[in-house]
């Protein structure tokens, strides 16, 4: 049995960073590692290592998605994996000069929505290899893949395709 009226909490050297005293504002730190499962979407991330972008196709109504989804939003039926083309066109674009803290060091960067022939919906990605003022809606782009995979959607990114370059050459030569 222990009943000790002189018990004392151990003192430590861990202080607290204080930003201000009126009101009292202190630094509070937090970080965490998740054990994150990609679950039914896993195939998409694995396939990027084989230079394939996998979308989905509804087995029942045939709707083709530019993204993985296990079930069709149009009819509720199960979908199957469907390989997307590695070439597409810019459906819309922006250049981010600011961003979330995690991506601030990467600014400025370009975001695009890609449209693919024969696919009913879009795909969001980064575009590199073009200045902000050279990107346009309809610009032909092609997919490139990181060799060292991080199992993130940025394992695929887009660059202007040779066709985009030809279009620039043609317009310089006065052809359309």
């Amino acid at each position: 049995m222990t009943l000790n009226p002189n018990a004392k909490m151990e003192e430590t050297q861990n202080g607290t960073e204080v930003y201000g005293f009126d009101p009292l504002i202190v630094k509070s730190h937090y970080e965490i590692d998740y054990i994150h499962s990609y679950a039914q979407d896993s195939e998409f991330f694995v396939a990027l290592g084989h230079k394939k972008i996998m979308g989905s196709k509804c087995k029942k109504c045939g709707y083709v998605y530019g993204t993985p989804r296990g079930h069709c939003m149009m009819c509720g039926a199960e979908t199957e994996w469907h390989q997307l083309p590695n070439e597409g066109k810019v459906h819309s674009y922006t250049t981010c000069y600011f961003g979330s803290e995690e991506f601030l060091p990467e600014t400025p960067f370009h975001l695009i929505m890609v449209e693919f022939e024969g696919v009913n919906s879009l795909f969001m990605a980064r575009l590199i290899g073009a200045d902000a003022e050279d990107i346009y809606i309809g610009m032909p782009v092609k997919a490139k893949f990181r060799r060292n995979q991080r199992f993130l959607p940025t394992d695929v990114y887009f660059v202007p395709s040779e066709e985009a370059l030809k279009a620039v050459d043609n317009s310089k030569n006065g052809k359309k």
Binding site: T94, C96, F98, G99, S100, F103, E106, I112, P153
Partner: peptide, 14 residues
């Protein structure tokens, strides 16, 4: 979406 450059102003800009 988030890992591509998660930033709402970016989405709205597109």
């Amino acid at each position: 979406d988030y890992p591509v450059g998660g930033f709402y102003t970016g989405y709205y800009a597109m």
